[in-house]
């Protein structure tokens, strides 16, 4: 009777316990991957090399995630996609984040990609010698009305007490002709992505060029950072942790000089329009902006720079009231 009872109840129970125990010991890889969408700020180029590296090297998958890395673009706004639920993570510039939060968007910053804003101004040192900010007086300076560069330049002029009437602000677009023709002395561009392309053209024309870095003049306006929603951070904290861990590892590996060839090949794989020799110049330029020193902890959020960004936006009335940006910074990487 007892043996019969053991066969009827005991054996299946032991079997179930064994199966459940074994399932618990199953390797991570057997679990279905958790799908998330990650909206980049821009198209696939050198500025997203770490994102592509994390994807292509299987780092996301290793952390149990199936990440759809979606390219951004001029009309794509990661923050809006986060709110609408189309993406769980995104890349946005600090001014976008501050502007969104000032309008009630529930966004938090979980890692900072660029430590130095890539927005620089290219100029010809022979024609336009720039030793101090005061040398900007009397110059024709390109700005994109409504863009980051306008905010940065106005902040720079204000910081050094240069009246806007002392310079000529020239509205720029993608066409560099006014700069090539010498009508504009300083032209805004992205240090890592565009400067190598324009630099090559100037060098071919036998001209020297230099770059003006606003951060060296005390304007630390934060650029791209990784963002998510407050709800995501609270309700799926473990997913956020896994995502950021894989992402930061991808970036560290992509920017590691030992992985240079792999990183270049990856950019060329996703962006067939940019010549290899340009990508080779873009990579070290990106490294400098993201990893100020070899031992720098990638993804560190520079709270002081964020606060300065907020101050600038407040002073230029780009936001109506203070958002207390430090409350949005939720570093996950450490």
């Amino acid at each position: 009777m007892q043996r019969q009872l053991f066969h009827q109840i005991g054996l299946p129970t032991v079997g179930m316990i064994l199966i459940l125990s074994l399932a618990g010991c199953a390797p991570e890889a057997d679990k279905p991957l958790e799908e998330v969408n990650y909206r980049l700020k821009w198209l696939y180029n050198i500025s997203v090399v770490g994102d592509l590296y994390a994807l292509d090297s299987g780092l996301f998958a290793k952390h149990g995630l199936a990440v759809n890395v979606k390219p951004g673009g001029p009309e794509k706004d990661a923050i809006k996609e986060l709110e609408l639920g189309h993406a769980q993570f995104g890349v946005a510039s600090a001014d976008q984040v501050i502007r969104a939060v000032s309008k009630g968007s529930p966004i938090v910053v979980i890692a900072q990609l660029f430590q130095t804003n890539p927005m620089h101004w290219i100029f010809r040192p022979d024609k336009t010698p720039l030793k101090t900010p005061q040398d900007l007086k009397g110059k024709t300076i390109g700005i994109t009305h409504g863009g980051n560069d306008e905010t940065i330049m106005r902040a720079l002029l204000a910081k050094y007490g240069i009246q806007e009437s002392a310079v000529t602000l020239f509205s720029v677009r993608y066409d560099y002709t006014p700069f090539y023709q010498g009508k504009v002395d300083l032209w805004p561009l992205y240090r890592n992505a565009q400067a190598p392309i324009i630099g090559v053209k100037l060098q071919k024309a036998g001209e020297r060029f230099d770059l003006m870095d606003p951060s060296k003049m005390g304007i630390r306006f934060v650029a791209n950072s990784v963002v998510t929603t407050r709800k995501m951070l609270e309700e799926r904290r473990e997913t956020v942790h896994r995502f950021i861990k894989a992402l930061l590892q991808g970036w560290r590996e992509a920017l590691n000089p030992a992985n240079k060839e792999k990183a270049i090949a990856l950019v060329l794989k996703y962006n067939k329009e940019t010549p290899e020799e340009i990508v080779r110049q873009q990579l070290p330029a990106t490294r400098i902006l993201m990893m100020p020193s070899a031992d720098f902890e990638f993804g560190t959020i520079d709270a002081a720079a964020w606060q300065q960004t907020e101050e600038i936006m407040l002073a230029q009335k780009l936001i109506p009231v203070r958002v207390y940006v430090e409350k949005l910074l939720k570093p996950i990487g450490k």
Partner: peptide, 13 residues
């Protein structure tokens, strides 16, 4: 969808 004014502005904005 309870979206913020950043996504779609409200009447006052």
């Amino acid at each position: 969808l309870d979206l913020s004014d950043y996504v779609i502005p409200g009447f006052s904005e």
